[in-house]
Design a protein around this nucleic acid. Structure first.
Lengths: 366, 366
DNA sequence: TTGAAAGCGCTAACAT
DNA sequence: ATGTTAGCGCTTTCAA
């Protein structure tokens, strides 16, 4: 890996100018076949790979789309992994075990699916994807760093403060994912959290006494969480119960916080139904109830929100509202691609449909 | 979004030179506080975001790691999604349904988990990740494109031909994931497919007649698939059966191909056990057997390989060999980070342990 | 069809 | 502490 080959090296070796080298790579037909071959040979011989930075600088575009999100839920305390350490050679290449309960990592979650969608669509459209995960940087370096390297940026709602977002969008198109629309400065893809939660709540209230329902809320600063509360409280009020009278517990969207909340409920008296602001917490609730010997749905109904995979596969299967996560990612890419083509088009807001999925956990046995 | 602000604009507005602007951003302490403030004000006022291309060119490094993989399994025929079309406004914001069977997209698969691992580790180490998914490009443009934009590249085994890989590694460090080690030119992270498959096979042979076992192989060009076959055949021979006598069916790692293979088996006579080269195919086999009223594990044992999530959650739960997918991704990033620090270190090969997970599908009922 | 030369926007010596 | 300047490696007019 001596010194990296550049256009100059290739040009010299092929006996042509750097302009010709560039042409061979960009518009091969503009070069005489003989010349082209000579250049291609030199390219191969030198292992020449064009510098993306130089090209990006000269072309003033990169062909890369950025996706930025806040940070990892539980993965922040991912276990240490040190493959570079000693003692590798002596380790066994496999072990045998009876089905171990859950590994050290969480299952596929919201972000993974959004990412998958973005990948698929970027791939279809011929873009490359750059992924940045926020760290606790005061100066918001990471997101700016990414913004400087891409043609367009997708950000998860609330992962970036408004002022930073405003500045970034001065440089490149920005698409905001989910959450409440933020004015109409940016392109936006969202879902109708409130409407779906209201409907889901109505369904539950058909089976459970509105006065004995507990709402398990998300973190106070989550816009999605807030919208879900809005939908819930609207439905409860419509059923003739003041929202203030409902028991509200607050979690942080993690499974563990759901377990804790359920333990509190057990202490205070098991409710008729628990409506959680996301699946993870709902699953935690079910965990804790099971441990305590309380049956779902026999003794208490439970619902979630998001539609992660684990919700479909839990026992009992969890009633939830499925977000079109993959399509959210895809839509964001489409919006970005569109704006890159037509920079001056009006900001567009796309609202994707949610799907309420009724399953065992909310269906009182006959 | 007039013209993008550059260092020159900022410098002019702040009444300083471009060098000072650059300093304020790179080494703030080297600038007098008053000056720094002036510059920062100008930055904010102009919405200045440094160009990653220019910076990368000048610094000769980007801080980005690349991850390249072949293409999407089944997602190539992902359904059309057109969010930009008409009629959006009138669409309902949600729908209600009883638990729908499987959506249009596959569950979280091998690649998704590897990706997650890479993300986590890149995040920990302060790198940004660039993801490229291969298209059927003759000139291998995509991977070269990525290689030109990153400081180091991770590729999935067999997703890139040897000659291309060799060329790329002339420019930047390359880490190859999984599969058989390719000489010792690159850093490498792999697993011992053969040993684990041999052990798994032995376990199955303890319950099923070796003469009545079917091996469901992967595509002929998969090195992982080949290694799994090696392990299987070794175990079978050790049991006193010539490998040639074993019935071998070939699939392409998809669930559908597993279903087809099972249908063939049903026609030819249901075997005592099916050992599949990956989980997807094993799940397909179970699908088809269930449809035909053949019980797993009562009538036939089935095992997979990979340890994807769906394997743990299927009915019956699938015996498999769990790959440390997340750790594979993390290890690759660690290897890359190490090499960027010490470019001349000897190529390193890390072998991660597999875990054989015995579950219902291979456990003959008492 | 090919070459010469002027940027693209930034960093990092080197001067001051 | 700040300014000047020479690249970094490529694309793209404009000429020849």
């Amino acid at each position: 890996m001596s010194r990296r080959a550049t256009v100059y090296d290739v040009a010299e070796r092929a006996g042509v100018s750097i302009a010709t080298v560039s042409r061979v790579l960009r518009q091969p037909d503009a070069v005489r076949p003989v010349t082209r071959e000579r250049v291609l040979d030199a390219v191969a011989a030198l292992g020449y790979v064009p510098s993306g930075s130089a090209r990006g600088l000269a072309e003033r575009r990169t062909g890369v789309l950025g996706l930025y999100f806040p940070g990892f839920d539980a993965s922040e305390d991912a276990p240490e992994l040190d493959v570079l350490g000693e003692g590798q050679a002596s380790a066994p290449t496999f072990t045998v075990a009876d089905d171990p309960e859950g590994g050290p990592y969480p299952a596929m979650l919201f972000l993974d699916e959004v990412l998958r969608g973005a990948e698929v669509e970027a791939w279809k459209q011929g873009f490359v994807l750059m992924i940045g995960v926020g760290r606790d940087d005061p100066g918001r370096e990471t997101v700016r760093d990414i913004a400087g390297r891409v043609d367009g940026l997708m950000v998860l709602a609330q992962s970036v403060p408004d002022d930073v977002l405003a500045r970034l969008s001065q440089r490149i198109p920005v698409v905001v994912l989910s959450g409440a629309p933020r004015g109409d400065t940016y392109d936006h893809v969202s879902v109708d959290n409130a409407a779906a939660m209201a409907e889901l709540t109505r369904t539950v209230l058909a089976e459970a006494d509105a006065g004995r329902v507990v709402f398990l809320a998300g973190p106070a600063d989550s816009p999605d969480g807030a919208q879900r509360w809005d939908g819930f409280s609207a439905a409860v009020e419509a059923a003739g119960i003041a929202a203030e009278r409902v028991t509200v517990l607050r979690g942080d969207f993690t499974r563990a916080s759901g377990r804790r909340a359920a333990e509190d409920m057990i202490t205070a008296g098991v409710p008729a139904a628990v409506i959680a602001a996301n699946d993870q917490m709902a699953l935690g609730v079910i965990d804790a109830f099971r441990t305590a010997g309380i049956g779902v749905p026999q003794d208490v109904l439970v619902t979630g929100f998001d539609g992660i995979e684990a919700a479909a596969l839990s026992r009992p299967a969890l009633t939830t509202v499925r977000q079109p996560m993959i399509d959210l990612g895809r839509a964001a890419v489409q919006l970005l691609a569109r704006r890159l083509e037509r920079p001056d088009a009006d900001p567009m807001s796309v609202r994707l449909p949610l799907q309420i999925v009724l399953r065992e956990s909310s269906r009182r046995p006959d």
